[in-house]
């Protein structure tokens, strides 16, 4: 996302020395390539060969400049870099098999988080009888957690023979992942995401006489943010207070997510942005167990070691590639701006 500050920073960067140097080199190389053109069709074969060699070298320099020097100088530091993440997982088409797959995804994310030194806590989870998980919310704490996880948002599809299918047929099912930006409690107020009087807080279930008469644990809480219609129910914690805190955390994350999406949309409207806001209904990845293959459809990348992905290890390769893809898009956009 670039904000007005980013743009100011970019201007500053353009004037900065390293960028100037890279820019000069880029112009010089372009010019040399131009100059070389006539020689490529020279009548002397050895001259042509020489020119071709030189051309290749210059081309390499340009590519290098374009793919790594400029990006590292140009891509503004992410405005979400400091944020933690809240990852919501929801089972989709495919019944029990979908919830079994969701449990596998959950495990993958927990391992991936710990390999990256993030602190991951399952804050809500609805398990079902078969050992699957119908839905879950995981808090991933640590700087950079949101940026690492954000490209996981979307529909994940699995193709495999479920452990529950005696006939051994391959099933296709899906699970949806939604990654939300998580603010520190003290930052929630700064962002001005909601007003307390706009949130209706309800406790669930009747308690009869209540008080000393009843010692059942009844801690479920539901919040409704009236202006946006967002509702959050929380019942995994053993006290009202804790469930309320968790519910407010989820509400803030959803509202922050809407805010970021809105900002991207505004940018897109004003300057033809290429930056996509995650489309949650888009099928982003397929896990094919029979072929040990995981494919990310957005960048057309396949990893032929599904086991390693599910262990959280090779997931890093997807995350890195998606991050790079995003940065390239940002850069392309900036270069386009420069040409306008």
């Amino acid at each position: 996302m670039s904000t007005p500050e980013d743009i100011a920073r970019l201007r500053q960067l353009k004037e900065s020395e390293p960028l100037q140097k890279a820019w000069d080199e880029w112009t010089k190389t372009k010019k040399s390539l131009e100059d070389l053109k006539p020689l490529l069709s020279d009548s002397d074969p050895s001259m042509r060969a020489l020119a071709a060699e030189e051309h290749e070298a210059l081309d390499g320099t340009l590519t290098q400049l374009l793919q790594s020097t400029f990006p590292s100088l140009l891509v503004p530091p992410s405005t979400t870099a400091s944020l933690s993440a809240l990852v919501e997982l929801k089972s989709g088409a495919g019944g029990t098999e979908s919830s079994l797959f969701l449990a596998d995804l959950l495990r993958m994310y927990m391992r991936f988080a710990s390999a990256n030194s993030f602190r991951a806590t399952v804050v809500a989870e609805n398990e079902n009888e078969a050992g699957g998980t119908k839905d879950a919310i995981v808090e991933i704490k640590g700087e950079g957690a949101y940026d690492a996880f954000r490209w996981e948002s979307g529909v994940h599809r699995v193709q495999r023979v479920p452990s529950t299918d005696a006939a051994g047929r391959v099933h296709t099912s899906t699970a949806t992942v939604i990654v939300l930006p998580l603010l520190e409690e003290k930052d929630v107020q700064k962002e001005d995401l909601f007003r307390m009087e706009d949130v209706k807080i309800e406790v669930m279930r009747a308690r009869g006489a209540g008080g000393q008469h009843v010692n059942k644990t009844e801690s479920a809480v539901r919040l409704t943010h009236i202006p946006s219609g967002i509702t959050v129910s929380m019942q995994d914690e053993r006290s009202q207070h804790q469930n309320k805190r968790r519910a407010f955390q989820v509400l803030s994350a959803r509202l922050m997510d809407q805010k970021i999406t809105r900002e991207i949309a505004e940018r897109r409207a004003t300057r033809n942005s290429l930056v996509k806001s995650a489309d949650r209904s888009e099928k982003i990845r397929t896990y094919n167990y029979a072929q040990e293959r995981v494919t990310d459809h957005r960048i057309g990348m396949s990893i032929m070691n599904l086991t390693s992905v599910m262990e959280g290890d090779a997931l890093q390769d997807f995350v890195d590639a998606l991050k790079k893809d995003h940065e390239e898009t940002l850069m392309e956009e900036m270069l386009n701006d420069q040409c306008d």
Binding site: V203, G210, G211, Q212, V214, N215, E218, S219, S239, Q240, H241
Partner: peptide
């Protein structure tokens, strides 16, 4: 010893 109740938690806060 009496288990603290959610009603109590609420008014104390």
């Amino acid at each position: 010893i009496l288990i603290p109740r959610p009603e109590t938690e609420h008014w104390v806060i």
